Amino acid sequence: EESVKIVRLVKNKEPLGATIRRDEHSGAVVVARIMRGGAADRSGLVHVGDELREVNGIAVLHKRPDEISQILAQSQGSITLKIIPATQE
């Protein structure tokens, strides 16, 4: 059973501070990098390897990473992410 986590981040004009990529094996959209000091890093709630399912209620599974980045870039104020946390080894 996948544990889905709802994360709310507050982002002003600054970038979210995370990059995403598509996992070639599973097809999932995952967090590739977290930039120090960005909104994602400061929240402490988003981690490399987390699978991104939704951004502000928009399912991202069938979107290209550049489309998802665009949605994230255009979002201001509160951003709600639905993520499946990376499995902690």
Score class of each variant (00 low, 15 high):
3 S>T: 09
4 V>D: 09
4 V>I: 13
5 K>T: 15
6 I>N: 04
7 V>F: 06
8 R>Q: 11
8 R>T: 13
8 R>G: 03
8 R>C: 09
9 L>S: 05
9 L>G: 05
10 V>W: 09
10 V>E: 10
10 V>D: 14
11 K>H: 14
11 K>D: 09
11 K>Y: 13
11 K>T: 15
12 N>W: 10
12 N>G: 15
13 K>S: 12
13 K>F: 09
16 L>Y: 03
17 G>S: 03
17 G>D: 04
18 A>V: 14
18 A>Y: 04
19 T>Q: 12
20 I>M: 10
21 R>N: 07
22 R>E: 07
23 D>Y: 04
23 D>I: 09
23 D>G: 04
24 E>S: 10
24 E>C: 09
24 E>A: 12
25 H>K: 15
26 S>F: 02
26 S>R: 08
27 G>E: 07
28 A>Q: 11
28 A>M: 07
29 V>K: 05
30 V>F: 14
32 A>D: 15
33 R>E: 15
33 R>A: 13
34 I>D: 02
34 I>K: 04
34 I>W: 00
36 R>W: 02
36 R>H: 11
36 R>I: 06
37 G>L: 02
37 G>V: 02
38 G>T: 07
38 G>K: 04
38 G>Y: 06
39 A>W: 09
39 A>E: 04
40 A>W: 04
40 A>G: 01
40 A>E: 01
41 D>R: 03
41 D>S: 06
41 D>I: 03
42 R>Y: 04
42 R>L: 11
43 S>Q: 05
44 G>D: 06
44 G>Q: 07
44 G>R: 07
45 L>P: 01
45 L>S: 10
45 L>M: 12
45 L>Q: 15
48 V>R: 05
50 D>F: 00
52 L>E: 00
52 L>C: 01
52 L>Y: 01
53 R>I: 15
53 R>S: 06
54 E>L: 01
55 V>H: 01
55 V>N: 02
56 N>P: 00
56 N>A: 03
57 G>E: 06
57 G>M: 00
57 G>R: 02
58 I>V: 14
58 I>L: 09
58 I>A: 07
58 I>G: 03
59 A>W: 01
59 A>V: 09
60 V>M: 10
60 V>C: 14
60 V>K: 02
61 L>W: 14
61 L>C: 13
62 H>K: 13
62 H>V: 02
62 H>R: 10
62 H>Q: 10
63 K>A: 05
63 K>F: 06
63 K>W: 06
64 R>Y: 06
65 P>M: 14
65 P>F: 12
66 D>V: 10
66 D>Q: 11
67 E>Y: 07
67 E>S: 04
68 I>Q: 02
69 S>R: 13
69 S>W: 07
70 Q>G: 12
70 Q>V: 07
71 I>C: 07
71 I>Q: 09
72 L>P: 02
72 L>S: 03
72 L>F: 13
72 L>M: 12
72 L>W: 07
75 S>T: 13
76 Q>F: 09
77 G>S: 10
77 G>T: 08
77 G>F: 05
78 S>E: 14
79 I>F: 06
79 I>H: 04
79 I>K: 05
80 T>V: 10
80 T>H: 08
80 T>I: 11
81 L>A: 04
81 L>K: 05
81 L>R: 03
81 L>T: 04
81 L>P: 04
81 L>S: 04
82 K>M: 04
82 K>G: 11
83 I>T: 08
83 I>H: 03
84 I>L: 11
84 I>D: 05
84 I>Y: 07
85 P>Y: 02
85 P>W: 02
85 P>R: 08
85 P>F: 00
85 P>M: 02
86 A>D: 07
86 A>Q: 09
87 T>H: 13
88 Q>S: 12
88 Q>N: 13
88 Q>I: 11
89 E>Y: 10
89 E>F: 08
